[in-house]
């Protein structure tokens, strides 16, 4: 009799545990909010697109990864616009119109960002110019003095 009771109690317990586990699953599912994608290609496109967009609340996270409230809203917006048949460029433009170029992880090439895109190249060119000038100067000044004037060589070695 008691054995049956414990078995029953055990069964109820495990049923409860199972139920809890199911609920835990539901909670988790809600946290990542699965969107009703029509097919796998659409889901891949969505993932790719949201990865290129910045979450404005936590600015070093993209829309795909962020769990911020606004990111969730914007993901929903992106999803619905995809459903409405808009292409990636249109969806990006929609967000840029509201949140400026800052939402894009890749800044577009335009007059305002020329310095950003080509600045490193300018610095490289400046460095190359300095190197060329120095090498020319040294080869001109150093060639006759190389063997005779050891003091000047020492001076250059200092730094």
């Amino acid at each position: 009799m008691t054995g049956r009771k414990t078995l029953l109690a055990f069964r109820t317990q495990s049923a409860l545990l199972l139920l809890l586990m199911l609920f835990a699953g539901a909670l988790f599912a809600q946290a990542i909010e699965p969107l009703p994608f029509k097919n796998h290609t659409e889901e891949v496109r969505f993932q790719h697109l949201t990865r290129e967009l910045r979450c404005l609340v936590c600015q070093n996270e993209n829309l795909a990864d962020s769990n911020a409230d606004l990111a969730r809203d914007l993901r929903r917006e992106v999803f619905e616009q995809m459903q409405a048949g808009k292409n990636d460029a249109q969806i990006k433009q929609y967000l840029v119109d509201r949140y400026s170029d800052f939402v894009l992880y890749d800044p577009p090439v335009k007059p305002g960002t020329w310095l950003l895109w080509f600045g490193p190249l300018l610095i490289l060119l400046a460095g190359a110019t300095v190197v060329v000038i120095t090498v020319r100067k040294r080869s001109r000044a150093g060639a006759p003095a190389e063997s005779t004037d050891s003091a000047s060589i020492n001076e250059e070695d200092d730094w």
Partner: peptide
């Protein structure tokens, strides 16, 4: 309540 119009205003916080 939904924060939809806020997206149009570019509200982020």
């Amino acid at each position: 309540r939904e924060g939809r119009t806020a997206i149009d205003f570019g509200v982020y916080g």
